[in-house]
Simulated scan of single mutants.
Amino acid sequence: MILLRVFALAKVTCKEGIRDRSLFGIFLLALFLMGLNIAVAGFFMRDLGKVTVDINLSAISFAGLLLVFFVGINLMAKDIDKKTIHLVLSKPFSRAEYIWGKYLGLVLLVMTTLVVLLVLSCATVTAVHGMYPGFFGGFSWEVYFWAVAFIGFQLTLLCGIVVFFSTITTSSFITLIFSVATYLVGISLEEVLFYLKGQAASKDVVASEALHSFLEVVAWIVPNFAAFDFKVEAAHGLAIESGRLAISAGYGFCYIVLLLWLSTVIFRRREFN
C-alpha cells in the first residue's frame, strides 16, 4: 500500500511537470543546440567527432539542469506556496511518503525527458557521422550511452538536493539559489583542490592551511558532481573502467538516500501555517 501511494504521488508530480510550458522551451533550446551542431560541424574539421559528441552531451546536460532548476523546484514549491500541502497531507499520505513521492516524480520526469533528448542526440550524432565518417574513428556508442546515463545520475542527485532545500526553506527562489550554488561548487571543487595541491607541490603559490582545511570540509559536505562527468571519455572514445562506474554510482546512491532521509526528518518537524 505504501508503494502504491508513493507511486501515485510520483505519477501526479510527473504529469504536472509534463504540462509545464517551460518544458517545451527547454526541449526547443536543446533541439536548437543539437541542430546547430549539424550546421557548424564543418568548421571543426580537425576535431569534428570530439566536438559533435561534446556539444550533444553538453546540450543534454544543460537542458537537464534547466529542467531541474526551473520545473522541478516549481513542482516542489507549488504545494507549499499555494497552501495545497494541507489538502495533500489530509489524505492517507505520511510526510515521508510525500517526500519520496515528490522525489520519484521529479526523477521520472527527468528520466522521461532524458530519453527523448537521447533519441534526438543519437539522431544528430548519426547525421554528422554520416556526413563526415572519417572523423569518428575513436567514437564508441557504449561510452556515449554511459556518459548520458551518468548525466541522468547527476540530475537525480540534483533532484535530491532540490527536495532537501525545499524542506528547509519557505521560498522557491531561495531553494533555487541554494541548489544552483551547490551544483556550481560540486562541479568545480575537485578542480580547485587539484589546482591548489599542484601549486603547493611546485611552491609557486602557497595557500593557507585554513583555506585547505575549509575546502576539505566543503568537499565532504557538498556532493562531487564531477564524479559523474564522462564527457571527456565519450568525446575521445576512451574506455571507462567498470570499477569507476561502480564507485560513482554507489557514491551517488548513498548521497541521495542521505538527502532524502534528512529531508524526511526535517519535513516531519515542519509546521505549515
Rank of each mutant, 00 (worst) to 15 (best):
residue 185 V to Y: 05
residue 148 V to M: 02
residue 92 P to L: 05
residue 152 G to W: 01
residue 117 L to Y: 06
residue 258 L to M: 15
residue 60 I to D: 05
residue 94 S to W: 07
residue 119 V to M: 08
residue 198 G to P: 00
residue 127 A to V: 13
residue 194 F to S: 15
residue 179 S to A: 14
residue 142 E to D: 08
residue 151 I to M: 08
residue 256 I to H: 01
residue 101 G to W: 03
residue 244 R to V: 12
residue 183 Y to N: 03
residue 182 T to V: 14
residue 12 V to Y: 15
residue 262 L to Q: 14
residue 149 A to C: 03
residue 42 G to T: 06
residue 108 L to N: 09
residue 124 T to R: 02
residue 47 D to I: 11
residue 25 G to A: 03
residue 51 V to W: 08
residue 108 L to D: 06
residue 20 D to Y: 01
residue 41 A to L: 02
residue 99 I to K: 02
residue 267 F to R: 00
residue 40 V to M: 12
residue 29 L to V: 02
residue 65 L to K: 09
residue 89 L to D: 04
residue 110 V to D: 07
residue 114 L to H: 10
residue 192 V to F: 03
residue 84 T to R: 00
residue 202 S to T: 09
residue 24 F to S: 07
residue 176 L to F: 06
residue 60 I to S: 05
residue 179 S to M: 01
residue 127 A to T: 14
residue 8 A to C: 11
residue 266 I to C: 10
residue 89 L to R: 01
residue 98 Y to F: 14
residue 230 F to E: 08
residue 38 I to C: 12
residue 136 F to K: 09
residue 184 L to F: 12
residue 199 Q to A: 15
residue 212 H to M: 14
residue 133 P to W: 12
residue 70 F to V: 07
residue 124 T to S: 12
residue 142 E to C: 02
residue 230 F to A: 05
residue 171 S to D: 04
residue 17 G to R: 03
residue 19 R to W: 05
residue 73 I to N: 02
residue 249 A to Y: 07
residue 264 T to W: 01
residue 51 V to R: 13
residue 218 V to Q: 03
residue 56 N to S: 12
residue 218 V to P: 02
residue 40 V to H: 08
residue 261 W to A: 14
residue 152 G to L: 01
